[in-house]
């Protein structure tokens, strides 16, 4: 009896979480421009989305942004983790506290504050004949900023776990600084770097609020495009694209899981 209720409970929450996703996937196969009625099954949106220049541009922006911002945030996060580790405890607590502000603060405040700073930089630079154009550049700077705390959060524990003697031993044995770092330190912190990168990539991919305030007109990511489309009616191509992306991530995760299992097994045999 208890087991029955446990199952029922898990299934009910499962339905709560998946009902909207089921709706969206159903829309992507709906042969009708409006979502008010079911016009029969079709695959045409999956073809037409590739011909929609605006959607493709938003997709490209979203992916490039996620990749580049995650990459730069990971590099900065790695540098921060390495140097924070060497700081005195007091100084470290203060710097880490400031670094974590974008993670703890509300997105709307982070977005607004970045918008204000880009405007201020623009005013300052205009004295020298430069301008700050709201678009890819500003959004990229914003995404890197809110990604850094997450990369530090993933990399920092790994750096703290390193035994400093191994690095010194490598130096004593004749390795150069860069060799010692690449061959001794890096392998230990690589898992943290990878998970930090993935986390940053996903966060950038899904961000709407911060992008909304710093994107400027004429530049769109998928999220900001969806936001403006909600008022005038979402194009069915958007459902198709989202379903495809969702399925893509699912497959990728299954692939990683399978690869991991296979590696585990082969390690057991050898």
């Amino acid at each position: 009896m208890k087991k029955f209720f446990t199952r029922l409970y898990v299934i009910l929450i499962f339905i709560l979480l998946y009902a909207p996703i089921a709706v969206l996937i159903a829309f992507s196969f709906n042969d009708s421009r409006t979502r008010a009625k079911w016009g029969g099954f079709t695959m045409k949106w999956y073809v037409q989305m590739f011909q929609d220049a605006e959607i493709m541009a938003a997709l490209r922006n979203t992916l490039v942004l996620a990749f580049v911002s995650a990459l730069i945030a990971t590099v900065l996060g790695l540098m921060a983790s390495l140097s924070l580790n060497r700081m005195k405890k007091r100084k470290r607590t203060i710097v880490l506290g400031i670094l974590n502000i974008p993670m703890l603060n509300a997105d709307i405040v982070t977005g607004i504050s970045l918008m204000l700073v880009f405007i201020a930089f623009g005013q300052f630079l205009s004295q020298y004949g430069y301008t700050v154009v709201f678009g890819f550049g500003t959004v990229l700077l914003g995404h890197i900023t809110f990604n850094i705390p997450y990369t530090v959060m993933s990399i920092m524990p790994r750096v703290q776990g390193i035994n400093p003697s191994t690095y010194e031993a490598a130096l004593d044995l004749g390795a150069t600084r860069s060799q010692a770092f690449r061959k001794v330190v890096l392998p230990d912190i690589l898992p943290g770097i990878l998970s930090g990168f993935l986390l940053a990539f996903t966060l950038s991919l899904d961000d709407f609020v911060i992008t909304h305030f710093i994107k400027g007109p004429g530049f769109d990511t998928l999220s900001t495009k969806i936001y403006t489309e909600v008022r005038k009616g979402i194009k069915p191509e958007m459902y198709a694209l989202s379903t495809l992306l969702f399925a893509g991530v699912l497959l990728m995760m299954f692939g990683i899981e399978k690869g991991r299992n296979a590696r585990k097994k082969s390690q057991q045999y050898h």
């Binding site: 969206l24 709407f208 998928l222 999220s223 969806i226 909600v230 979402i234 459902y239 989202s242 992306l245």
Partner: peptide
Amino acid sequence: PMWMNSLL
């Protein structure tokens, strides 16, 4: 579910 665009 978090991998589907949250706005959608």
